[in-house]
């Protein structure tokens, strides 16, 4: 790639800043980390390849999500015979719901950060091990000296607790209907 073909710093900045949203969008579409990782990589490659086509008058994230949507649909079409978490028929419906969900992502992120901070230390540790360090349930269980079953239940409880907390904070921050 010659220097003239390299994307501009501004484009890379946009792309960098959009990763959270793209990642969340793709995961919400296909419902599986591994598949979402593959799709995001492809999406990034395509976005970089199309950098020159991008017009600054167009909103970057909307354009990027359009590209990601195309990659999501191409992915499930190519793997129709595999047992994906979401069927291709469902993914076609999830793309719309996912686009709507990422619209609230920034606010959700602020709420989530606040909820994480309010967790007791041992629950923060659990979340860190599971989500940041990507440890398996068995590995966490051996670290904590608990059974795999109880760790699974604990993770699920803390996760649900966080979701409730985020939902409450979002509801509190939204304007009243009345």
């Amino acid at each position: 790639m010659s220097s003239s073909q390299l994307p501009s710093d501004k484009f890379v900045g946009f792309l960098t800043a959009s990763q959270d949203r793209l990642r969340a969008y793709v995961l919400a579409c296909v419902g599986n980390y591994s598949d979402a990782g593959d799709i995001l990589q492809k999406t990034n490659v395509v976005l970089l390849r199309k950098a020159r086509e991008f017009q600054e008058s167009v909103e970057f994230e909307a354009w990027a999500i359009g590209v990601a949507k195309f990659e999501v649909l191409a992915f499930v079409r190519d793997r129709q015979r595999e047992r994906l978490s979401f069927s291709s028929e469902l993914v076609e419906l999830m793309v719309d719901a996912s686009e709507e969900a990422v619209g609230t992502l920034a606010k959700r992120q602020i709420a989530l950060r606040s909820c994480l901070a309010s967790l007791p230390e041992e629950k923060q540790l659990l979340i860190r091990m599971r989500y940041a360090e990507d440890l398996s349930m068995g590995q966490i269980a051996s670290h904590l000296g608990k059974s795999v079953g109880s760790v699974k239940a604990l993770v699920r409880r803390v996760r649900a607790l966080l979701h409730e907390c985020v939902a409450t904070k979002l509801a509190q921050s939204s304007p009243s209907a009345s």
Partner: peptide
């Protein structure tokens, strides 16, 4: 239900990022 699922999954994605900012015990 699809909207709920999309919201939950997008939150799951955020959690991966935010969990890295938690202090290590």
């Amino acid at each position: 239900l699809r909207r709920s699922a999309a919201a939950w999954l997008s939150e799951e994605s955020l959690l991966r990022q935010e969990a890295a900012t938690l202090p290590v015990s």
